[in-house]
């Protein structure tokens, strides 16, 4: 078990190194950092001096090691566009994106898992067919269209909810949160639903597929043959076994939540990391792009490590050694 976790950690470090390398290559090879940092009035001599000072003439490996070291120390460099420290820019945007992502994920799980279970247990029901058709349309509508539709209906036509921004936020120890005011929740609702819909359909279809497989397994049939009560059969026996693969995929889906948050943030002008990233692409602000990548990959890796731990907690085969 310890080995399993350690192995996953080593793999995570590898992924992080690869992403750091990607970010470094971006910084180093896409455009010339010196011309980006200096204005037209800087002389060639000054440029050369700066190049030497920043160590850009050092061997490649040396530069990469220093870059990684700086990342570990939390020194993320400066934005080409705003000249502000990137760390500060990103940090101020993290709460907005995380809250949006987590609320969306919770919505998708709260609706997706029960719907998946229902459609697996009643495969021929009318409601099941309706749900399946709806989700098929759900995965086919681009996130931005869902956002536009929600804005159009609830913002423009009905005028119930705000259509852009975070509304009122509350500062809690430097963390700017939407979760502690009605206003904040009102602003969060539409973007979170928009972001959650796509994940919801994926979760539902996955739970349905896995649950259908489990319901055909020998141990479920054996439990049926022993007259185990239906509720226990469905939830204690079948759903628990379904969750093992589902949890893995949900961890992987977290990447999807982050990616689609870029779109959602753009539609709702939600001031998160995604919007920052979009701006940085438009202005070729390489340091911000690179750091965004590293931060996203870090969250992804972190979530998947947590998933691995959950996995161990659920499945005794990973926890307890086989005697035979």
């Amino acid at each position: 078990m310890v080995y399993f976790i350690l192995k996953r950690m080593v793999q995570s470090v590898f992924v992080m190194l690869a992403v750091a390398f990607l970010a470094f290559s971006l910084f180093r090879f896409v455009g010339d950092p010196i011309t980006q940092m200096t204005g037209v009035e800087t002389s060639v001599k000054d440029q050369e001096r700066l190049r030497e000072e920043l160590g850009l003439n050092d061997p490649f490996i040396y530069q990469f090691t220093r870059f990684t070291g700086d990342l570990l120390k939390g020194d993320f460099g400066f934005s080409y566009r705003t000249r502000q420290p990137v760390a500060k820019m990103i940090a101020s945007r993290i709460p907005a994106t995380l809250e949006l992502g987590v609320v969306a994920l919770i919505i998708s799980l709260l609706v997706g898992i029960p719907a998946g279970v229902y459609t697996a247990l009643k495969p021929r029901g009318v409601l099941t067919q309706t749900i399946l058709m709806t989700t098929l349309v759900g995965v086919s509508i681009p996130t931005f269209v869902i956002g536009i539709m929600l804005i159009f209906i609830f913002g423009v036509q009905l005028g119930w909810l705000p259509t852009f921004g975070r509304g009122g936020t509350v500062q809690i120890g430097g963390w700017e949160s939407s979760l502690f005011s009605v206003d904040g929740w009102r602003a969060l609702l539409l973007p979170a639903i928009t972001l959650g819909v796509y994940q919801l359909t994926l979760t539902m279809r996955l739970v349905r597929a896995e649950m259908t497989e489990v319901m055909r397994s020998d141990y479920i049939r054996f439990a049926m043959a022993r007259g185990v009560p239906t509720a226990s059969l469905h939830y204690r026996h079948a759903l628990a076994n379904t969750m093992v693969p589902v949890i893995t995929i949900i961890g992987l889906q977290f990447g999807g939540v982050i990616a689609f948050s870029i779109v959602t943030e753009s539609v709702f002008q939600w001031p998160g990391m995604g919007l920052l990233f979009l701006e940085s692409i438009r202005f070729v602000d390489i340091p911000v792009m690179g750091v965004y990548l590293v931060v996203i990959a870090f969250f992804f890796v972190l979530v998947n490590l947590v998933v691995d731990l959950l996995y161990v907690a659920i499945d005794p085969r990973l926890r307890i050694k086989d005697v035979s």
Binding site: Q11, V19, A259, I262, L293, I296, F300
Partner: peptide
């Protein structure tokens, strides 16, 4: 794995950038 940590839209945006 690395590609998975950087989902589709992100990759596409990145290449575009």
């Amino acid at each position: 794995d690395v590609q998975l940590a950087l989902p589709a839209i992100l990759t596409a945006l990145l290449i575009d950038g």
